[in-house]
Design a protein around this nucleic acid. Sequence first.
DNA 1: TTCTTTATTTGTAATCTTTACAATTTAACA
DNA 2: TGTTAAATTGTAAAGATTACAAATAAAGAA
Lengths: 137, 137
Amino acid sequence: MFEKYLKQLKEKNLKVTPQRLEILKYLDEHRTHPTVDEIYQNLKKNNPSLSKTTVYNSVETLDQYNIIQSITITGNEIRYDFNREMHHHFLCKTCGEIIDIDVTCPMQDNMLNCKHQIDEVHWYFKGICKNCLEKER
Amino acid sequence: MFEKYLKQLKEKNLKVTPQRLEILKYLDEHRTHPTVDEIYQNLKKNNPSLSKTTVYNSVETLDQYNIIQSITITGNEIRYDFNREMHHHFLCKTCGEIIDIDVTCPMQDNMLNCKHQIDEVHWYFKGICKNCLEKER
DNA sequence: TTCTTTATTTGTAATCTTTACAATTTAACA
DNA sequence: TGTTAAATTGTAAAGATTACAAATAAAGAA
C-alpha cells in the first residue's frame, strides 16, 4: 500500500516515517494541489497526534528532494503537487480551482540553454474555467 | 513629473491621489519587483503619514485595473511589477533576485484558444543566476 | 534483540503577510 | 463652496509560516 512512497523516500536516503508516508499518499490521491492546512486537517482525522509543523517540515523536505512540487500560483499560500513531471497550472479566479495544463513549448529548450542555470519551470495561467464560463450564461 | 501616472489613473476612472502617484512612481523607478513592505518602508521616508494599508489597497486596485502586475513567484509574499507587458521572471534561489525574462512561445496562442478563458499568463523559472554561478567557482 | 546515534516529530510561541473595519480625510464634480 | 462617494489611516484580527527545544522514533551496529 505504501511501497511506492517508501521506495521514493529510500531512493533519496530519507528516513521513512508514517507521517511522510501518509502525506505522500494523501497528495497522490488528492491531485487538487492542497495547502498544508488541507493536508493537515484531513490526515488529523485518522492521526490525531499529527502536528501541523510536521506537515510543514515534511512537504518542505519532499519538495527539496524533488519528490513533490510546490505551487505558488495564488500568492496567498503554497500548494503542493504529487506530480512533479513537467506540467502547468490554470487558476480559475471564479471557483478557485487549480487545473492541470499540459502544453510543451518548442522554445523551452532555448530558455533552458540561457546563461542562468534553470532548475524549475512553472507556467501559471489565470482566468475563468470552462465550467464557470458556462454557469455565467 | 507625475503626468504619466496621472494619465494611467484617469484612463481607468480611478481617483488621482498623491499616494497612488507615489506608489506608481516608485514601481516605475524600481523594477526589482518589490513587496508591499519594501514600497511602504521607502515611501514612508518622505511621506511619514503613509499607511501600510494604503499600500495594500493601492497595489490591489492598480493590479485589478491592469496598471501594474502581481508576481507570486516566491510563495512567501506578493511582489509587484510596473511593467505589465508580456514578460516573464527568473528567481535566483541563491541571491533571491528576480530577473526579467523575455521569451515568447509559438505555442502560446494555442493555449489562449483553449476552453478556459485565459486572462493572465505567468512563467516563472527558478535556479541560479549567472552572477551567482560565477561566484561559486 | 538491544543500544546508540541522529533525524524527525511535536507543541508552543513568535513572526510575517495580509485583511477587516470604522473613523477620518480628500478627490471630483456640481 | 458644498456634497458625495471613494480613498486613506490606524488598529486589531486573521492566516500562513518559521523558530525552537523537548520528546520520540528510525536506522544501523553490536
